[in-house]
Simulated scan of single mutants.
Amino acid sequence: MKKVGIIVNPVAGMGGRVGLKGSDGVEILRMARKLGAEPESPKRTVDALKSLATFKDQLEFITYPHEMGEDECRAAGLSPRVIGSIQSGETTAEDTEKAAQLMLAENVDLLLFAGGDGTARNICHAVKQKMLTLGIPTGVKIHSAVYATTPGNAGEVALMTLEGRIKDDHLAEVMDIDEAAFRNGIVSAKLYGFLRVPTESRFVQNAKSGGIASEKEVLQGIAMSVIEAMTAKDVYFIIGPGTTTRTIMENLRLENTLLGVDVLYNKQLVAQDVNEAQLLEIIKGKKARIVVTVIGRQGYLFGRGNQQISPRVIREVGKEHIIVIATKEKLIALQGRPLLVDTGDEELDKELQGYVKVTTGYADYTMYKVGY
């Protein structure tokens, strides 16, 4: 009987919808809770574990107490063996590392862990490349290549691995950024190590990459195309994060929150670095558009770094009013893989599938497939 280890960072992702761009640190978590943030990890972990529930009698599930895995396992219909101890409601990075070390001692065949880049760093620090691992994406910033593309796909990859349908594994990058600098508009990514993950190119994401200087003219053309679309009066434009969307703001000579979400009205900045609740208050019952770009190499439109543009916001605006922008180089770098959405709402993710028009230059467009 194969052993599956399960570790959940219960606070991962809490800073996303409230616009805090991360969840690392006691003070950030306090702010997130004050702003009304709800835990994202439990539900997303359960979504991943449901794929394994059918085979629960053929697998042994080993997890940590309460919100660090036990609760999620039971919610998914599993009967785990619980090891270790925590102070419920006050879990720490040290708990994650201790849990990983105990999983290593248990000789689990696969360690599933739920979180973001900080969680991946903890796992890497604790076990390095000594065991097979796979991340369930529940964090705000997920630059690392150790995560499946969605929670559901994490479950599928885990199942295929445990059944022997995926036989190979490889070393994948564990990346993280300085959150304090990130909140000030500075992206400082660093390689912290590697984890062994199952080799499945469809369902496991790549490490994030940035743009290149030679794209400047193309970005200008993309920006002008979007600005021309703003001629419609009395329409709110929600501008997602990224260097591609920043060019729009620069051309309008408006201050830009590089890593946050801004709102324009009649080409004027009316709200800056907003969270989900603020967005909903602004656009409720109004005409609005969402402008998002593609994360380099990963291909995400929603669910990575822009959780403020939540399922409720997307439904309020309407999927037909989403404007996708990206350079052709970014699309080519995907090597035919689809654009991805991981909003946390499976029904919405399904609705967003299909083909979307991507603005790739001035009056230049291409149709590209969206999956999830």
Score class of each variant (00 low, 15 high):
Ile123Trp: 13
Asn122Trp: 01
Gln308Phe: 09
His125Met: 11
Glu250Lys: 14
Gly118Glu: 05
Val82Met: 09
Lys330Glu: 11
Pro10Arg: 02
Ser310Phe: 11
Glu179Val: 10
Arg30Pro: 06
Lys21Arg: 15
Ser51Cys: 06
Tyr355Ile: 03
Leu348Lys: 10
Ser85Tyr: 03
Asp345Phe: 08
Gln220Gly: 04
Thr245Leu: 08
Tyr147Phe: 15
Gln58Gly: 07
Ala180Asp: 07
Arg121Ser: 03
Met160Ile: 03
Thr359Cys: 06
Glu276Gly: 13
Ala32Tyr: 10
Gly185Gln: 13
Ala12Ile: 04
Pro10Trp: 00
Glu347Asn: 08
Lys141Met: 04
Met31Lys: 15
Leu258Trp: 09
Phe237Pro: 06
Asn266Gly: 04
Met68Lys: 04
Val341Phe: 03
His170Leu: 13
Ala154Thr: 00
Leu171Cys: 10
Gln220Met: 02
Leu191Met: 13
Leu132Gly: 13
Lys330His: 12
Asp262Cys: 12
Ala213Asn: 06
Gly69Met: 03
Ala120Ile: 08
Thr54Gln: 09
Met175Lys: 12
Leu102Lys: 12
Pro10Ile: 02
Arg289Asp: 00
Glu347Lys: 12
Ala277Val: 11
Glu346Ile: 12
Met230Asn: 04
Lys141Ser: 07
Leu340Ile: 07
Leu264Cys: 07
Lys56Gly: 04
Lys328Thr: 11
Thr119Gln: 02
Ala99Thr: 07
Gly299Pro: 05
Leu280Ala: 12
Gly69Ser: 07
Gly16Trp: 11
Gly22Tyr: 12
Glu215Asp: 01
Ser214Gln: 05
Val226Cys: 02
Glu329Pro: 00
Arg312Lys: 14
Gly22Ala: 12
Val324Tyr: 10
Thr92Asp: 04
Ile283Asp: 01
Gly285Ala: 05
Glu255Leu: 12
Glu27Tyr: 13
Lys141Cys: 09
Tyr236Ser: 00
Leu301Tyr: 02
Ile186Ser: 04
Val313Trp: 09
Ala93Val: 12
Arg165Ser: 11
Asp47Phe: 08
Met367His: 11
Met175Leu: 14
Ile323His: 05
Asp273Leu: 12
Lys128Val: 14
